[in-house]
C-alpha cells in the first residue's frame, strides 16, 4: 500500500525570481509523525502550502509525484482539491491570533466545515464541534461555540483551530509551527495535545517545527530542510544517533540536551546566513557555511543512503 502522503521532487517558485522549494521529497505514512525541521525561511511552510495547494498568489508548484491516499494531487482541479481540504487532509497554522475569522463565532466557523464536506445538519455539526472542543481540552464548550475569536486567548484559539481541523476526521494533519506563537507553558500543552490526538486517532501528521526538542519527543521520522531542499531524512533515533549531513550535525550540536533547548532559541547557531537561491543555482547551498566544503561542492551533489530509510544530500561518502 502506498504512503498516505507521497511527495517527490517538489519545486515551488514565486514569480521568476525565487525558488523557495527545490526538489523536495517526503512521505508521511498512516499513523506516523513526520517532522520537518530547518531554520526560518528554508521553505517548510511553502512545502506544506504547496501540498495543500494553498500557495499565495504568484506561487507555482511542480512535482514529479504528489499523491495522497494514492490519489494524484497534481491532476486534481481546484474543486477536487477543495473536497479533500478540511476533509481528508487538514492544516493548522502558526498564527492562531489571525487564523480565525474575526467576524464569525467559533461555532459558526467550526460547523461550516462539517456541513460542507459531510452535509451534516447544523445541529449535528454543533454537537460534533462541542465534542471536539471538549476533546482538545476546552472547558465549557457550549459557551465557547457562541464566542468570537477575539474573546479567546492565543492558546484557546489554537485549540479551536485543532478542533476545527479534526471536524471531518482527517487522515492527514499538517501542523505548521503550531506552537511558535504561543507562551512557553501553553506551547507544551498544545504539543502534548497534538501528540496525544495523533496517537489516539491514528493520524498521519506532518509537523513543521524549528524546535529539535519537540522532534526528539514526538517524531517518528525527521526531514531536515536547508534552503529549499531536504538535506537529510531518517527515522528519529537514527538521525539523532548518526547524523550525516554537516548541517544536521551543526543543528544537533546546538541542542545540548534534547528537549531542554530554550523554546525561543533559533534553530542552529551555525555561523553565516542562507544564500539567496535563484532558479539557476547549482551545487550545495550550504557550502558557504560548511566546514567540509571544497570545490566539488559547487557541482552536482549526490544523494547518499547511509542505511535503508536514511539518506542525505552531501558529497561526503557514506
Amino acid at each position: 500500500m502506498s504512503a498516505l502522503l507521497d511527495v517527490e521532487g517538489l519545486e515551488v517558485g514565486f514569480g521568476s525570481r525565487t525558488s523557495a522549494v527545490r526538489g523536495t521529497s517526503l512521505t508521511v505514512e498512516r499513523g506516523e509523525t513526520h517532522c520537518l525541521v530547518g531554520e526560518s525561511g528554508c521553505g517548510k511552510s511553502v512545502t506544506a502550502l504547496a501540498v495543500m495547494n494553498l500557495l499565495a498568489r504568484g506561487g507555482h508548484r511542480t512535482a514529479r509525484r504528489m499523491t495522497f491516499q494514492g490519489k494524484d494531487l497534481l491532476k486534481l482541479n481546484d474543486g477536487g482539491m477543495a473536497k479533500l481540504r478540511g476533509n481528508a487532509m487538514a492544516m493548522i497554522f502558526q498564527e492562531p491570533m489571525t487564523s480565525l475569522n474575526p467576524a464569525y463565532t467559533v461555532g459558526s466557523q467550526m460547523t461550516e466545515v462539517l456541513r460542507r464536506h459531510k452535509g451534516a445538519s447544523q445541529r449535528a455539526a454543533t454537537d460534533r464541534a462541542a465534542d471536539l472542543l471538549a476533546r482538545v481540552g476546552i472547558t465549557a464548550p457550549g459557551l465557547r461555540l457562541g464566542q468570537f475569536p477575539h474573546q479567546l486567548s492565543g492558546g484557546l484559539r489554537q485549540r479551536v483551530m485543532i478542533a476545527m481541523a479534526l471536524m471531518c476526521d482527517p487522515q492527514l494533519l499538517i501542523a505548521d509551527e503550531p506552537t511558535t506563537a504561543l507562551d512557553v507553558t501553553v506551547q507544551a500543552q498544545i504539543l502534548r495535545l497534538l501528540a496525544e490526538l495523533q496517537r489516539d486517532l491514528g493520524l498521519g501528521m506532518l509537523l513543521i517545527t524549528h524546535d529539535l526538542g519537540i522532534v526528539a519527543r514526538v517524531a517518528t521520522r525527521v526531514s531536515v530542510m536547508y534552503a529549499g531542499e531536504v538535506v537529510e531524512s531518517a527515522a528519529t533515533a537514527q538521525l539523532f544517533a548518526d547524523p550525516r549531513h554537516p548541517y544536521t550535525k551543526g543543528l544537533l550540536r546546538c541542542v545540548p540536551v534534547p528537549g531542554k533547548q530554550r523554546q525561543d532559541e533559533p534553530l542552529g547557531s551555525i555561523p553565516g546566513t542562507v544564500p539567496r537561491i535563484g532558479p539557476g543555482f547549482a551545487g550545495c547551498a550550504f557550502r558557504e557555511r560548511c566546514d567540509f566544503a571544497d570545490e566539488t561542492c559547487a557541482h552536482i551533489i549526490p544523494r547518499h543512503a547511509a542505511s535503508p530509510g536514511h539518506d542525505y544530500l552531501c558529497r561526503l561518502p557514506a
Binding site: 514565486f14 514569480g15 511552510s45 502550502l49 499565495a56 498568489r57 504568484g58 506561487g59
Partner: peptide, 8 residues
C-alpha cells in the same frame, strides 16, 4: 503568507 507578491 506574510510575504506580499511583488508584481508591479
Amino acid at each position: 503568507m506574510s510575504v506580499a507578491v511583488v508584481n508591479a
